[in-house]
Write a protein that binds this DNA or RNA. Structure first.
Lengths: 138, 138
DNA sequence: GTTTATGCAAATTCTTTGCAATACT
DNA sequence: AGTATTGCAAAGAATTTGCATAAAC
């Protein structure tokens, strides 16, 4: 996706395509696993931490990104595949490796639907597995 | 469960039954939803925050308690029902209400088994739903 | 007597906000 | 002109550690 397309995407999602937002978006599109604020700070240097934070905050409010807690001390962020958080295509589990600290998307694991009592209004879901990843098991 | 029984339980789980540990254990047995460090600090006053923290840290390492991240800024703790984290009886989802901040155990919702590739070694699981709880929907 | 546990204080880590300066409409 | 965005600095919130004292074995 080129620059112009990213701008269009951002507008479609309801945010003004400022330089910082485009850069954050581009970075998030390029990563293979969820990243935290510190990761982005390095990748997007010299962009300011607080500016990145505010872009992420906005993106989260606009349902452009998911915020994931894996038990490490920092939030991780990843692009939503689908604008609708409830859609099956936007739900996948994550695996947090307690040895190397890597958070992996388990895109291929189908998540069976879980029915909550209907008076619960679900906005987001986080399915987290923790343990040792294949690379660290050897 | 009385004092003596708690002591026995702690010994069975491999920790020495010190006064602080017994008090923390008793408190955890009395609560209906997962609690954070600040909650325990209030409930167990004047016990020191760091002391509570170290008891929780020990309990977690001994698989006596679960550590839960709900996206609020603090970890929540709850007793394991079963020593074996993998057993079905020790897995249940949680619901985090973004309005009131309460974290509820969804004990009655059966969790379908999810198979990960066998080279992943799973030690713990966190299934978190977020949104608005019944009480806050009205 | 040596190891283990505790309390106090402080360090750490990460997130979040205040505010002035800049850029956009 | 007026609103929105950004960067710098600092505040805030929660966890974690250092160290000296006290307790347990």
């Amino acid at each position: 996706m080129n620059h112009t397309e990213i701008e269009k995407t951002l507008i479609a999602k309801g945010v003004r395509p400022t330089p910082n937002r485009i850069l954050v978006m581009k970075e998030l599109m390029g990563v293979t696993r969820p990243v935290n604020l510190a990761d982005l700070e390095v990748a997007l240097a010299p962009m300011d931490k607080a500016s990145i934070f505010r872009v992420l905050d906005l993106f989260a409010r606009q349902d452009i990104i998911h915020v994931i807690e894996d038990g490490s001390r920092s939030f991780k962020y990843e692009l939503c595949h689908n604008r609708d958080h409830h859609s099956a295509s936007d739900q996948h589990a994550h695996f947090y490796c307690e040895k190397c600290g890597k958070l992996t998307c388990l895109d291929d694991i189908p998540l069976p639907p879980i029915d909550l009592p209907r008076n619960y209004e679900v906005r987001a879901v986080n399915f987290m597995f923790k343990g040792t990843c294949p690379e660290c098991r050897d």
